[in-house]
């Protein structure tokens, strides 16, 4: 922003900079919950605390909290183990598709927080084809597949693609690929914009088979990649809102020409995200 001012108005060179008091109520640190849970997987939760934006302290995990998983009726399912550094995990409990969960976190000195969400249904995807070609004058590598969307529910999807390469020394390198999807059903659709995550809602194809073509840069076909895996996650609205707003938040951070982004949170009395998702993938071998 400061550079922008210098660019647009030379008089700003004599402008004044001064520290002013933050005229806001000094808020106590709040508990922060980060938890993404999925079908068939044990629970892993991270608890930390927020700081004032002018506090120099490091953001760190909160240990010694009581983290409970409850079902929709309020019945305690499990109290998670404290693994240290703010991490808590279940010993036996795993997420079940279509089931709702509530999580509560309490710790002395903090206001307790809670949140609820469900594990969404598992996405049904079918790989169809790959083609090397051109799109808008650029070499592209296209991967086509379809999603069999369940009827009667508002479903949300996140799509990612990861390339794998054996480095010849027994290690596998992973590359998260940038790709383009040009279809109006996508939140971040555009002929020119390449993203690492595509955001998709089923509003236009609810209950039907929806064919998707993602286009990675043409170098993919000529690279040393051994395979590409496409991951499709069905997620709850909360997970989708968090992922979408956080993606915008990161991509526009520091840009004075952009509107500020509010990152979504579904945690009562605190910050963070508690959201369910289910992921399936397919691999394209080279």
């Amino acid at each position: 922003m400061k550079r922008l001012v210098y660019l647009i108005f030379p008089l700003a060179l004599v402008s004044c900079e001064k520290e002013i008091p933050l005229n806001a109520e000094v808020t106590d640190p709040k508990l922060v919950l980060n938890c993404g849970f999925e079908e068939g997987e044990p629970w892993e939760v991270h608890v930390s605390q927020s700081l004032s934006v002018i506090d120099n302290g490091n953001l760190s995990g909160v240990d010694g909290a009581t983290v409970n998983i409850l079902d929709n009726n309020g019945t305690l399912l499990e109290t998670l183990n404290d693994d240290g550094n703010g991490y808590y995990s279940s010993t036996s409990l795993v997420g079940a598709s279509g089931t709702g969960y509530k999580l509560t976190v309490s710790k002395s000195g903090f206001t307790s927080i809670e949140s609820s969400d469900i594990v969404p249904s598992i996405p049904v995807i079918n790989y169809k084809d790959t083609v090397s070609g051109t799109y808008l004058g650029e070499d592209v590598f296209e991967i086509t597949f379809d999603i069999n969307d369940p009827a009667g529910s508002n479903d949300h999807y996140l799509i990612q693609a990861i390339g794998y390469e054996d480095d010849g020394f027994g290690n596998t390198n992973e590359y998260q690929l940038w790709f383009n999807v040009n279809a109006p059903e996508f939140e971040n659709t555009s002929p020119e914009e390449y993203n690492q995550i595509a955001f998709l809602k089923d509003g236009q194809f609810n209950g039907s088979n929806y064919e998707i073509t993602i286009r990675a840069d043409g170098w993919v076909a000529e690279s040393n990649l051994d395979s590409i895996s496409v991951y499709v996650s069905s997620c709850t609205e909360a997970a989708y809102n968090y992922a979408w707003s956080y993606d915008r938040y990161q991509s526009t951070s520091g840009d004075p020409f952009s509107q500020p982004v509010q990152v979504y949170s579904n945690v009562t009395n605190g910050f963070g995200i508690f959201a369910g998702y289910s992921t399936r993938s397919f691999a394209v071998e080279f």
Partner: peptide, 18 residues
């Protein structure tokens, strides 16, 4: 006015603060 750790900071490869 407040900052906290993002999901990808604690579970992914990111270093994000919000």
């Amino acid at each position: 006015l407040e900052r906290y750790l993002s999901f990808d900071n604690v579970f992914g490869s990111g270093y994000g603060e919000i």
